[in-house]
Measured scan of single mutants.
Amino acid sequence: EFILQPIHNLLMGDTKEQRILNHVLQHAEPGNAQSVLEAIDTYCEQKEWAMNVGDKKGKIVDAVIQEHQPSVLLELGAYCGYSAVRMARLLSPGARLITIEINPDCAAITQRMVDFAGV
């Protein structure tokens, strides 16, 4: 995967993360976080594997957030924003999600994903 990915990106003209974002923009409903998550899950199941938590493990994350109702949540590494959208949609009003992503391209994609999801 890591050796072939740059070749695939070159042939496709963009990165996997950008392709995931484009899929979301084309297939998800703006302002609907659940729709965004479903679009990412569908893309990763049908098109390309991606390094995200996914729906199965995501339900565990959901349960922890719902049980503890944090007022501040810190995410280290956002990748394409799946977990940020997943967690933010469950936060109480006034709660904050702080996401740190070292890769500026992934940070920009995450910001667009979060904005599109409306969270």
Rank of each mutant, 00 (worst) to 15 (best):
E1A: 01
E1D: 03
E1V: 09
E1K: 01
E1Q: 04
E1G: 06
F2V: 10
F2L: 04
F2Y: 01
F2S: 06
F2I: 04
F2C: 10
I3F: 02
I3N: 03
I3V: 13
I3T: 03
I3S: 14
I3L: 10
I3M: 09
L4R: 06
L4P: 00
L4Q: 00
L4M: 10
L4V: 11
Q5L: 08
Q5E: 09
Q5R: 02
Q5K: 12
Q5P: 00
Q5H: 02
P6R: 02
P6S: 13
P6L: 12
P6T: 12
P6H: 14
P6A: 13
I7F: 01
I7S: 08
I7T: 04
I7V: 02
I7N: 02
I7L: 09
I7M: 06
H8L: 08
H8Y: 07
H8P: 06
H8Q: 09
H8D: 13
H8N: 07
H8R: 06
N9H: 00
N9Y: 00
N9T: 03
N9S: 03
N9I: 05
N9D: 00
N9K: 04
L10V: 12
L10Q: 00
L10P: 00
L10R: 01
L10M: 08
L11P: 01
L11F: 01
L11H: 01
L11I: 02
L11V: 08
L11R: 01
M12K: 14
M12L: 09
M12V: 14
M12R: 10
M12T: 07
M12I: 06
G13A: 05
G13D: 15
G13S: 14
G13R: 11
G13V: 10
G13C: 10
D14V: 15
D14N: 02
D14G: 07
D14Y: 10
D14E: 09
D14A: 09
D14H: 05
T15S: 05
T15P: 04
T15I: 03
T15A: 13
T15N: 13
K16N: 05
K16R: 01
K16E: 01
K16T: 07
K16M: 07
E17G: 09
E17A: 10
E17D: 08
E17K: 00
E17Q: 07
E17V: 11
Q18K: 04
Q18H: 01
Q18L: 04
Q18P: 14
Q18E: 10
Q18R: 00
R19C: 12
R19L: 08
R19S: 12
R19P: 14
R19H: 07
R19G: 14
I20L: 04
I20T: 00
I20N: 03
I20S: 03
I20F: 04
I20M: 05
L21R: 01
L21V: 06
L21P: 00
L21M: 04
L21Q: 02
N22K: 04
N22S: 00
N22I: 01
N22T: 07
N22D: 02
N22Y: 00
H23Y: 04
H23L: 03
H23Q: 08
H23N: 01
H23R: 00
H23P: 08
H23D: 00
V24G: 03
V24L: 02
V24A: 01
V24M: 04
V24E: 05
L25R: 00
L25P: 02
L25M: 02
L25V: 00
L25Q: 00
Q26R: 03
Q26H: 08
Q26K: 07
Q26L: 06
Q26E: 07
Q26P: 02
H27R: 15
H27N: 09
H27P: 15
H27Y: 13
H27Q: 12
H27D: 15
H27L: 14
A28V: 11
A28E: 11
A28T: 05
A28S: 06
A28G: 10
A28P: 12
E29Q: 15
E29A: 03
E29D: 14
E29K: 13
E29G: 08
E29V: 13
P30T: 15
P30S: 13
P30H: 10
P30L: 03
P30A: 08
P30R: 03
G31A: 04
G31R: 14
G31V: 11
G31W: 13
G31E: 12
N32S: 01
N32Y: 12
N32D: 12
N32I: 12
N32H: 15
N32T: 08
N32K: 08
A33T: 05
A33V: 11
A33S: 07
A33G: 04
A33P: 14
A33E: 03
Q34R: 15
Q34H: 12
Q34P: 15
Q34E: 11
Q34K: 04
Q34L: 14
S35T: 15
S35R: 15
S35G: 12
S35I: 11
S35C: 11
S35N: 01
L97M: 15
L97Q: 05
L97P: 02
L97V: 15
L97R: 08
I98F: 15
I98T: 08
I98L: 10
I98N: 05
I98M: 14
I98V: 13
T99S: 09
T99I: 02
T99N: 07
T99P: 13
T99A: 02
I100N: 08
I100T: 05
I100S: 14
I100L: 11
I100F: 11
I100V: 11
I100M: 07
E101K: 05
E101Q: 00
E101A: 11
E101V: 13
E101G: 10
E101D: 03
I102L: 09
I102M: 06
I102T: 08
I102V: 04
I102S: 11
I102N: 07
I102F: 06
N103Y: 02
N103T: 15
N103S: 13
N103I: 09
N103D: 02
N103H: 03
N103K: 09
P104S: 12
P104H: 14
P104R: 06
P104T: 09
P104L: 07
P104A: 06
D105G: 11
D105V: 06
D105A: 05
D105E: 03
D105H: 08
D105N: 13
D105Y: 11
C106W: 04
C106G: 10
C106R: 02
C106Y: 00
C106S: 13
C106F: 03
A107P: 12
A107G: 08
A107S: 04
A107V: 12
A107T: 05
A107D: 06
A108T: 14
A108P: 05
A108G: 02
A108S: 10
A108V: 11
A108D: 11
I109L: 02
I109T: 15
I109S: 13
I109N: 06
I109M: 03
I109V: 07
I109F: 14
T110S: 10
T110A: 05
T110N: 12
T110I: 07
T110P: 05
Q111K: 14
Q111R: 08
Q111P: 08
Q111L: 05
Q111H: 06
Q111E: 04
R112P: 01
R112W: 12
R112Q: 05
R112G: 01
R112L: 07
M113I: 05
M113V: 01
M113L: 07
M113T: 00
M113K: 03
M113R: 06
V114G: 06
V114E: 14
V114A: 09
V114M: 12
V114L: 11
D115V: 10
D115G: 09
D115N: 10
D115Y: 11
D115A: 14
D115E: 06
D115H: 10
F116C: 13
F116L: 13
F116S: 15
F116V: 03
F116I: 06
F116Y: 07
A117G: 09
A117P: 11
A117D: 10
A117S: 09
A117T: 15
A117V: 15
G118D: 09
G118R: 15
G118C: 04
G118V: 07
G118A: 13
G118S: 15
V119G: 12
V119L: 09
V119M: 12
V119E: 10
V119A: 14
